[in-house]
Amino acid sequence: MDDPYQALGLTKSASQDEIKKAYRKIAKTDHPDLNPDPAASERFKAAAAAYDLLKDPEQRARFDAGEIDAQGQERPQQQYYRDFAERGENPYRQYSSAGYGDFSDVFEDLFGARAGRGGGGPGAGMGDDFGGGQQDFGGFRRSGGGQGFDMRGQDVRYDLEVDFMTAAKGGATRITLPDGNSLEVKIPEGAADGQTIRLRGKGGEGYGQGGRGDAYLTLHVGDHPDWRRDGNDVTLTLPISLDEAVLGGKVQVPTLSGAVSMNLPKGASTGQRLRLKGKGIKGGNQYVELKVVMPPQIDAELAAFMEEWRAGHAYDPRKGMGG
């Protein structure tokens, strides 16, 4: 992926909201769980990597300025490491491995392909410089006795679409990793949009005897046609009939934990909000926003009744509105 904007079908002028929408659109059509086509999987992986780079405005600005490449790597430092390697000096003297990906090619440049297997080569005679034990170099470990370098695997990041109810109530979802393996991920109750879940040991493979890195899942909570969320409070749009709006009474209302009975006041209007205390997420409140729905057909009896009623009770709900 040389151009993250192209991977998302965008240009550099795209807004942050357009970037998010473009990624979600690709995820809904090309995610491996939804589309088995290998080409779709490649498009999804490219889009996911592009979104991971561009979703952070500061990181996006650094890419646009040429400070980092499409993989998020520092351009100057990356060349700096290579220059050191070509001169045969030790490039790990003052620098950490964090953020620089797989350095196996650098190891081979410095110490030869056999050094990582304990054989001879350019690095085989360096054991005396390290005291015969294991030495750490900001994430790299040099094993004594000419055993080569060990390095923990690279951490990887993925984006995961989660439906509204799973995020609100908690649950589990199965994902397919780029290597083809499937994994069940537990979604905690009240998971929020943008929240990150850490999966220990599910990242890139280590170098030498280094362990695997971790995987980080950034959650993207989908919208719901009837529910909205504000922190741990939720709002449900509840349709009510014309007679319920006029006469009031008890109605059944869905909640995250099941339906409950609620008293509807007489003369209820669309947009009116009622509260169900403690029925939100993890003890938050649920708000019920009413929506008056007319009958599917206005029959002659209803029309005649309203004509008679209007003759003696007409009112103007738009009175006082500015023109």
Rank of each mutant, 00 (worst) to 15 (best):
R114E: 15
A65R: 15
D233K: 00
L217M: 02
R152S: 04
G258R: 09
Q71E: 10
E301V: 15
L290Q: 02
P295C: 14
I26M: 08
G9M: 10
A124M: 08
N263T: 14
G267H: 06
R228Y: 00
Q272V: 05
G146E: 00
S182D: 06
K250P: 01
D150Q: 11
G121N: 02
L160N: 03
A314W: 10
S15I: 12
E189C: 11
L183V: 10
E244H: 03
I26E: 11
S257T: 14
T218H: 05
K282M: 07
A115E: 02
V162M: 10
K291W: 01
P38N: 04
F149K: 08
F63Q: 06
F164A: 05
L236S: 05
E307D: 14
G123H: 05
N232I: 01
T29F: 04
D129A: 15
P295L: 15
V292I: 08
Y95R: 15
T166K: 12
R93Y: 11
K277N: 02
F103S: 07
Q16A: 15
K282P: 06
H31M: 05
D37N: 14
I187V: 13
G211F: 01
P188C: 09
F107E: 03
D233A: 00
L217G: 00
R157L: 07
G284W: 00
A65D: 13
D105E: 13
P38E: 04
Y92K: 03
P239M: 10
A46G: 09
E108V: 13
K12S: 15
E67S: 13
G133E: 04
F130S: 02
A39V: 14
G101V: 00
G171V: 11
G119L: 06
K169D: 10
I298P: 08
